[in-house]
Design a protein around this nucleic acid. Structure first.
Lengths: 221, 221
DNA sequence: CGGGATCCTTGACGATACTG
DNA sequence: CAGTATCGTCAAGGATCCCG
């Protein structure tokens, strides 16, 4: 893609971060992903080839820094982009955001993002295995989440662990809760979310992770 | 261009305003352009066909409104984008912006933007014709600016009017002043800007228009 | 895991001509 | 002036395979 060839800061900013997928790459970095595979899991529909290209350009522009590992870290210039990227999100939250559509109903992606928002100190002391069932999902109808204060992981196949807590949900409603458009309580009372397991787990479940970073801001539609 | 298919406000925001050229279209609307040709003159390197498409999408998204005339006006949602678009510009101003490069040296585009920033009340009462000569420009080496409190215009051909004030300048330096990286005084003292005409005009010239909206913010490099 | 190298498709875009 | 219509090009990027 060619340059705008305009001596204008807006044009330059748009050239730097306006390429397709780039705002999502920045989102992942801002949210704390550091490794290539981690970033990629956060943007599963982006090809690896393209992610490599985008990371390189961001590095060239001084927005991120590649360190041995390899890991990727935002530079001061990159950290300063948080306001811009979040501004886009807040704007969209207010003016465009609605309930999820069919194309959004990916259980694996959803739980991966839930995992990003885990608050480790609040997890049970011992490893706990959750199984999510989303009958209405387009992809990722059945997802396992292994909670561990030392590091949690998501997978989409039965690895043979005993399931401690089973979550069966209408994925649309789960996403609405995630986005701040509904609540766990309402979802459960409406019969759209069912938690099966020891009382201690079903009770604490909502506290293990925060909702979407945008959940608090107000939506329009 | 296909959708990201993510249930994420950042993805939605990026889809809405992240298309190529769209931030520049928004810039023109925010700066007050209303007519098609006016918007197009502000983004001369964009094709008309594409501008039509972008305007249509922005209308579909509820960001702008088309009224008879035809004229284009930002809706409340569109006005609310000003912070995001300006945020991109401010970020780029701080981290990427430098002196203009060869591809930027378009005298016609420069004077068009100067015209956008005219403060009508400060203009001379009678029509005044300026001629700009930019020997170092890549395009638009010679531009006429007709000042009139009722409405000013730019053209790139001699329409036969008598020139009241002649401005000869190193276009790089003129753009640096415009961007807040130099001053009229420094430019004149360095011999990079020469004003020829009645004393009253050469004296008031700097007051007729404001500099770039980003001129006050600090640049890095 | 973290990419590099190729091939191939599609659609975004520019140029041009035309219209009310 | 403010578009519409058509056509051709080119490059962005998806898919696949490979590598250390």
């Amino acid at each position: 893609m060619k340059s705008y060839d305009e001596y204008c800061p807006i044009a330059m900013g748009a050239e730097a971060i306006g390429d397709r997928w780039t705002p999502l790459v920045l989102r992942e970095l801002i949210c704390g992903s550091e490794r290539f595979s981690e970033i990629h899991r956060g943007i599963p529909r982006m090809s690896k080839t393209l992610l490599v290209q985008r990371l390189k350009q961001l590095e060239r522009l001084g927005i991120l820094e590649r360190r041995p590992g390899p890991t990727y870290h935002l530079t001061p210039a990159g950290l300063d982009l948080e306001g811009v990227v979040w501004g886009m999100g807040l704007w969209a939250m207010q003016w465009l955001f609605g309930d999820p559509a069919k194309e959004h109903l990916d259980g694996a992606h959803l739980i991966w993002r839930v995992r990003q928002r885990i608050i480790p100190e609040r997890l049970p002391q011992r490893r706990t295995v959750l199984r999510f069932d989303f009958p209405g999902a387009s992809r990722g109808k059945c997802i396992w989440l292994l909670l561990d204060p030392e590091g949690s992981s998501v997978c989409d196949r039965d690895e043979g662990f005993d399931v401690d807590l089973r979550v069966t949900a209408d994925i649309v409603e789960f996403m609405r809760v995630w986005a701040g458009r509904s609540t766990w309580r309402d979802a459960i009372e409406a019969g759209k979310l069912r938690l099966e397991g020891p009382r201690a787990l079903t009770r604490d479940f909502p506290n293990w992770f925060a909702l979407s970073p945008f959940a608090e801001s107000k939506a329009a539609s």
